[in-house]
Nucleic acid binder design. Structure first.
Lengths: 136, 136
DNA sequence: GCTTGACCTCAAGTCGGCTTGAGGTGGCAC
DNA sequence: GTGCCACCTCAAGCCGACTTGAGGTCAAGC
């Protein structure tokens, strides 16, 4: 299949060329060669980059993503890890949902100020509690 | 009411003393005075800190939170802003939920590799699409 | 009254994920 | 064959939210 250059990869993925070079520097992707100075890639890199984008969206760091990508270009993702990450996202969602509901109630609350609103007070205390637990 | 010192504030909020000093440096809180070198605070600072923690949990930056805290120690939060933030959180939740469901399906998928799994493929493409749109 | 040790100040460092800037070079159009 | 421009390299900078380190100081205990 025809090689594509870095400009084309950038265009098709929406990632800046500097980002692609950065990903290369940290070992996430690799060009096949050069045309002049210009990096050229196997189009398969687009799959790899889509996987990286997915990982980022799921909250993995680039280092973690690196650990999931085989050096050969193949993906090797533990299905268990996927499920675990889905569960982690689910926990995040539940926290955010509670927060959203609290904010909505606080927005409707008739207490004279947010300081006096009981719902808001509970929310605040819960937030501090999380901060305190996070410390340990 | 009895003043409390920075150690006590740290203990009750779970925030490191260095964090409290940092918050002071950026104008979020202010000690009432000193006992020796040691900062002392009106216990009202605990309310203020709980509000800051809540703001952080809701995804506000410290700068944004600073804009919501009256210089006098009173909160002044626009109910509209609360509702808007609740909506933003809701949008985040929906994106995460889609991601979670996709990851779960991918974890169960029987395709020989993730590269071949259609669900996984759709997920990846969606992630790249978001990246591309984020660029503009 | 002197040690101790917890707080203090101020500057600098950290982390993740990139971007930016200065100065270099190769292919392509003319 | 030569100019130009877009890519290149490498180092440094940036952002947010803190933490860390070196060196200073004060209250309290012995």
């Amino acid at each position: 299949m025809a090689l594509i250059d870095i400009v084309e990869v950038s265009r098709r993925t929406g990632l800046a060329a500097s980002t692609l070079r950065y990903y290369e520097a940290i070992g996430l992707i690799e060009p096949l060669g050069r045309r002049g100075l210009r990096r050229t890639y196997d189009p398969v890199v687009l799959d790899r980059l889509s996987l990286i984008a997915l990982g980022r969206a799921a909250g993995f760091s680039l280092a973690e993503i690196g650990g999931m990508l085989g050096p050969d270009g193949a993906f090797r993702i533990d299905r268990g890890a996927l499920a675990a990450r889905a569960d982690a996202i689910d926990r995040t969602i539940r926290k955010l949902a509670a927060l959203r509901d609290g904010l909505r109630r606080a927005a409707l609350c008739r207490a004279p100020s947010h300081a006096a609103c009981p719902t808001f007070r509970r929310l605040r205390m819960a937030a501090l509690g999380r901060a305190a637990r996070a410390k340990r």
